[in-house]
């Protein structure tokens, strides 16, 4: 197993209150090496908390997170993160943004340039190396962010609703590209989203999360005989979507 979450609970202290807020409760999950796992759930179900824990920016209150069997103790270059709001450094060009992680990894300058250029090519941004983020469209910025995370070659790619701020068409084309990149690089991907369609389209498995407190309700295996043509329009796709929708729905409407 690449990533293992063992009965992870995360609580936050609440101001003026003795009882803490439980963001995640008893979450257990494992992700195989090279797997594409999507996490779907409504806002406030603890998705982002889970991602912070995986990143190592936060530590679980109880339980343990292991990466290759080793407990996660802090952030590191073995995991790459892609944020919804791109988080590009506006004073750096696209190329320099991609180089950022490589600088942190102390890769020599020339090699850095080459690698960064290579990853910009991979995300389809050949020729945009010298552009500043404000000169790029939202979709292009997110491509740069993906290239930046891939460039320092982490084993795991953690993505926090990366396409949520994009228009529908750009989103679909980036989803396709992400799958292509995933297949080309063989990374383990944990992809957080609130869109059921997106979760079904991208994930080999979809972990369905429910809020208050955040739990994983079920993990749905997704497989298609063929991904050719309009995958989203197939009956199979519709079944998956409905199944996940029902799982989410049951929780959203508590016993009357």
């Amino acid at each position: 197993m690449k990533i293992e979450l063992l009965d992870v609970t995360k609580e936050f202290p609440v101001r003026d209150s003795g009882t803490p807020f439980t963001a995640l409760s008893g979450v257990s999950l494992s992700v195989a090496s090279g797997e594409f796992l999507t996490l779907v759930g409504p806002s406030g179900c603890g998705k982002s908390t889970l991602l912070d824990l995986l990143t190592g920016l936060a530590t679980p209150t109880r339980g343990e997170i292991r990466l290759d069997g080793v407990p996660v103790t802090g952030p590191g270059l073995d995991r790459g993160i892609v944020f919804q709001q791109y988080a590009l450094f506006p004073w750096r060009t696209a190329l320099a943004n991609v180089e950022f992680g490589l600088e942190a990894k102390a890769v020599p300058r020339r090699e850095r340039r080459e690698l960064a250029g290579h990853y910009l090519d991979l995300v389809g941004l050949t020729g945009f190396a010298e552009r500043y983020p404000h000169e790029l469209s939202g979709g292009m910025r997110q491509r740069v962010a993906i290239a930046r995370s891939l460039a320092y070659d982490p084993a795991v790619l953690l993505m926090d609703e990366p396409f949520a701020a994009l228009d529908a068409q750009t989103r679909e084309s980036l989803q396709e590209e992400l799958l292509r990149i995933w297949q080309a690089t063989g990374k383990t991907v944990v992809f957080i989203t609130h869109g059921i369609d997106e979760a079904v389209y991208l994930g080999q498995r979809v972990a369905v999360m429910t809020p208050a407190p955040g739990r994983i309700r079920e993990v749905v295996e997704v497989s298609f005989d063929s991904r050719e043509g309009d995958l989203r329009g197939t009956a199979r796709f519709g079944e998956y979507r409905h199944a996940i929708w029902s799982l989410l729905r049951e929780e959203a409407v508590p016993v009357a």
């Binding site: 920016l57 802090g74 952030p75 590191g76 993160i81 988080a87 450094f89 950022f100 992680g101 942190a104």
Partner: peptide, 9 residues
């Protein structure tokens, strides 16, 4: 931006 950089260790 700080979060992004911190996440890169």
């Amino acid at each position: 931006l700080i979060k992004s950089a911190t996440s890169m260790g």
